[in-house]
Design a protein around this nucleic acid. Structure first.
Lengths: 338, 338
DNA sequence: CTGTTAGCGCTTTCAC
DNA sequence: GTGAAAGCGCTAACAG
């Protein structure tokens, strides 16, 4: 067992209450006594137990963070943003990585509840069946403030910080139109994903607003993964009537598209103009300047932690908070019409 | 306040001890009573408090993980590996991101101690002054099992899972020698970094073993960052007597080298052969096949969690455990001598 | 099989 | 200024 507050109390010949006072800087303590206690703490290498404190105060200084894929830099950035702000507010983070498994999300939620954390920041995974009844029920009966980041959960009206993906899809498409493209395709991710649906919606709106007919043939249904994108692109390149430009809904898929184009010796943007989504750090450096829509995940992280803190601090106010951040467009040249 | 074990006890007309028994599957409980309790738990949506349990049992089911940069996929992989194994052992993870700041590491260590966690898995940052007295003292007086991952801390003999970087440097260099290169350079990171020193050592050994004179001019002192690597390469390309091959000690620097080569219209490996360190996911896809030494960070993560669990489980055995994993060489062609 | 009771380490009145 | 004591929610003997 480690040193406790009582050990310190004995050593300094005071009561544990007094030790507690100097630990928390609460109440008056004679300077002399305080010093004696401080010395005892040093000498015995005492560290107060957050556990005991939590139980006693009926509150922790911990929040939960749930992400679908910790190896993805996008979520790394989110966590970094959360972590920055959490640190500022003296909050610790319990992390769960779900590998996109629904059950793992549910499990994480339950474990976090056991930990009596102050709140949860979560990016739901993009599994096929996010309408799962058990899932929704778990969230609804959680009774802990929860902030969704980046992705929404259908059939709930939860707090969250999101990206305006309709705008993203719109801007991406619009840029291509302004460049003179009229045959514009889009490669989606799984349609169970809100962001993708929204981007698709934005895409359609941009076409409509510019009197370009929507052509269902130009919609390529990907699954966020590189391989599928690669395949789809390969197939696309074989078509006679194919788009001159492509909006690609995720960075992994952008990589797949590029891979296929390279293999077929096609030039970007000459043979196919591209506007992607999400930053791909390494592309510039190898001379591949791909225009993309940028989510600023670190900002999403910061913003969600701020929102959570705001909720925690304002006890009564239980209104639903939703913030929607507009993505940035980063123009690099791959959208050009040549 | 949330529902407690006593609420359940009252509701089910038993004592809290009995409830505890069914919660933990310990001791005998009449099936009928058990059912009554289970119903009460359901009805009241009760979730036991891990806090109270921890205090009572004097042990948590939490470990701490400290990394220098959560946005770096390398550490993401490590965390994923840790997380996989932690999950298997019903352990939660409290995460700290230090941005490579020594003080943040120290702070994290202290906060983790307050949380009475079972153990710590940490990758120390690669700041300049890792010999800091206060730092060493904090670690030594921690009194919590700690596993270092990937990077060691000087002047301590702590448990850890490391990469055999001497071997890495050796193999990288040796491969180039076998290809016929004799003028081989190396780009290091900050020399305060153990891994880099080891790679440099391996580099020297390989040269020696093949009777190639070490040429100090061929050692480029980088700082892990892309920009510096870029500069150094630019400068290198201007030299008349320059190496035909380069061992590059980190992926960021590899990117910098590539960037410079591209800009100068130099070909890999014709103008400069390269063996890098660490995987760069996106390179293959853009047709840049760079040979590299691979750490398998997810394995480091798994292995470190397994080691920690082993330590936790075997109370008495306080011997220092150190495992050294050999890196893999992934040959892609950039090492060729043309 | 089940209840009573004494902690776990800390905070927080309420006295003195 | 300081101490005594109750209590946070749970577990773990020990009785019965």
């Amino acid at each position: 067992m480690s040193v406790t507050i009582n050990d310190i109390a004995k050593r300094a010949k005071v009561s544990s209450a007094t030790v507690s006072r100097v630990l928390n800087n609460s109440g008056y303590v004679k300077e002399e006594t305080r010093q004696r206690i401080l010395v005892a703490i040093k000498e015995m290498n005492y560290t107060p137990s957050a556990i005991a404190r939590s139980l006693s105060k009926c509150e922790t200084n911990t929040i939960g963070v749930i992400v679908p894929d910790i190896t993805n830099a996008y979520f790394g950035e989110i966590i970094k943003g959360v972590s920055e702000r959490a640190e500022r507010n003296n909050l610790n983070i319990i992390l769960f990585n779900t590998d996109n498994y629904l059950e793992k999300e549910v499990r994480a939620l339950k474990l976090l509840k056991e930990q009596r954390i102050k709140g949860i920041i979560m990016t739901p995974g993009f599994g096929e069946e996010k309408f799962n009844e058990n899932y929704i029920k778990t969230i609804n009966t959680l009774n802990i403030p929860i902030i969704l980041v980046s992705a929404d959960v259908k059939f709930t009206k939860l707090n969250g910080v999101f990206v305006d993906n309709i705008k993203g899809g719109f801007e991406a498409t619009n840029l291509l139109i302004k460049e003179g493209h009229t045959k514009i395709g889009i490669m989606t991710g799984l349609l169970s994903s809100e962001p993708v649906m929204d981007r698709l919606e934005g895409y359609k709106r941009a076409l409509k607003e510019n009197d370009i007919d929507f052509c269902s043939k130009y919609v390529l249904y990907g699954d966020f993964k590189l391989d599928k994108a690669y395949e789809l692109t390969k197939k696309l390149l074989k078509e006679k009537d194919r788009p001159t430009a492509l909006v690609v809904c995720s960075n992994m898929m952008t990589m797949g598209v590029i891979k296929a184009l390279k293999e077929e010796n096609k030039d970007i943007p000459r043979d196919l103009a591209i506007v992607g989504f999400d930053k791909i750090d390494f592309l510039d450096m190898v001379g591949l300047n791909i225009t993309y829509m940028e989510d600023c995940p670190i900002e999403l992280g910061r913003s969600s932690m701020d929102m959570l803190f705001d909720i925690i601090s304002s006890n009564e106010d239980d209104s639903v908070r939703r913030r929607i951040i507009a993505p940035q467009i980063v123009v690099k040249g791959s959208e050009k019409k040549i």
